[in-house]
Design a protein around this nucleic acid. Structure first.
Lengths: 224, 224
DNA sequence: CTCCTCATATGATCGGAGTGACATGCGTCA
DNA sequence: TGACGCATGTCACTCCGATCATATGAGGAG
């Protein structure tokens, strides 16, 4: 059984056989960068688990500006909200890289939840953790300035997607600066300035859709 | 059985007998305005349901400023996060009015979740809804200016706590302007200006810890 | 290999909103 | 009932960050 799936909340409480059975009942979806899994307003009764790649969850304001709620990677869940609390999708999910997902419909999940309470409990934990993260992001929007939020976002991405290298922690976030700006709720220009400033101080090195963090300590201090 | 409790997610899936039994296993807590139920950092293994009154969930930044995550009223749940995703409390809960709550410990909840999967499912729905609301608030922080956020907050409070009167919808929010400012992530002065402006236009009337909404249509338009 | 387009970089300008400083109002408690 | 303390109302001043404008660079399509 796939290691990535075993780390997903949906599979956490199941033994190997049960996990294999659940996996068999899920349908595979593949997207190229830029393609959307679903759009804000769509009817939603399907949940997905990321197997490979990254997906962004985002919304548009009436006047066309974009805000990114989250970047989701392997083992993470997308679209649960419309399943647990029935209703249309309140955000759009778009692939940041080539991405592979497994989808599960409402009709297949409910029996599982009734049959195996541990699964519900694992999902409660997962969604509680998400709510905590979201609350943290909200506090940052209120308390921190843009450079602080950029530093925080990079550290967060580094914890989740970073790999150590000889120069520092290499973080292939797959976000354009425009997207990074949407993630921290600021303009592209301001984010660019913050990044350039950090790079100038030697705290990090900029690469295409990636950064190398070289002084996590300073960045971390700047983020508070 | 109390009507307020029957509307709480925790009780939604139970029949009268089961609800009465659950209620009996919960301990009553009473607080006066200003008293805290728990503080950020406290170990947390208890969940509460508001029976009467209002409670605010808030956090302090390192430099002492405050941010309010939510105002919770009757039937709503507080402190679930530390229960579902074990860990210290990530916010402080403080009474906005005299308040009556019922508390349930981790040790009493888990057996219930295992025995009655419908309870978990109801809780998943409740927390999913909370996450949706939080995402909405986050988008507003990014997209709307302060007057817009104030209008939005008042409309939200009115939907939850408003009662129709001959002049308009009377909303006893029990928040000082300082607290309202913390709720929308702005300074007291700016919120005061927005309120004075709305009042000057005849959209609402200011009262002590309350407002009377007289032109919901305009306020609603201003909030978008 | 060469455009063309999209991403990145950087400066100039402007405005919303925070800060600080007061004045006023009002509820509550001795 | 008087007075203190907290909440509210309103300035002037400053500044962060959005917006506009304009390079420069780099990857893809032909």
């Amino acid at each position: 059984m796939d290691d990535v799936l075993r780390r997903a909340a949906l599979f956490a409480a199941l033994d190997d056989d049960q996990a294999a059975e659940l996996r068999a009942s899920m349908t595979e979806v593949t997207l190229a960068r830029g393609e959307s899994l679903f759009h804000e307003g769509d009817p939603g009764d399907r949940l997905y688990v990321v197997v490979e790649g990254k997906v962004k969850l985002h919304r548009a304001s009436p006047d066309g500006r974009e805000n990114m709620l989250a970047v989701l990677g392997p083992s993470e869940m997308i679209g649960e909200l419309s399943l647990f609390d029935p209703g249309p999708r309140t955000a759009t999910a778009t692939a940041l890289t080539e991405v592979k997902l497994l989808g599960l419909g409402h009709g297949d999940l409910l029996p599982l939840l009734h049959a195996r309470p541990e699964v519900s409990i694992a999902l409660l934990r997962a969604i509680a953790r998400r709510l905590r993260r979201t609350n943290d992001v909200m506090s940052d929007l209120v308390f921190s300035d843009v450079p602080g939020r950029v530093a925080k976002a990079l550290l967060d991405l580094s914890r989740r997607f970073g790999v150590p290298s000889d120069e520092g922690i290499h973080v292939a976030h797959d976000l354009t600066q425009e997207e990074l700006a949407q993630l921290v709720g600021a303009s592209r220009e301001t984010v660019n300035k913050a990044l350039a400033d950090f790079a100038g101080r030697g705290w990090l090195k900029l690469e295409a859709r990636a950064v190398v963090l070289m002084d996590v300590e300073r960045l971390s201090r700047r983020s508070r």
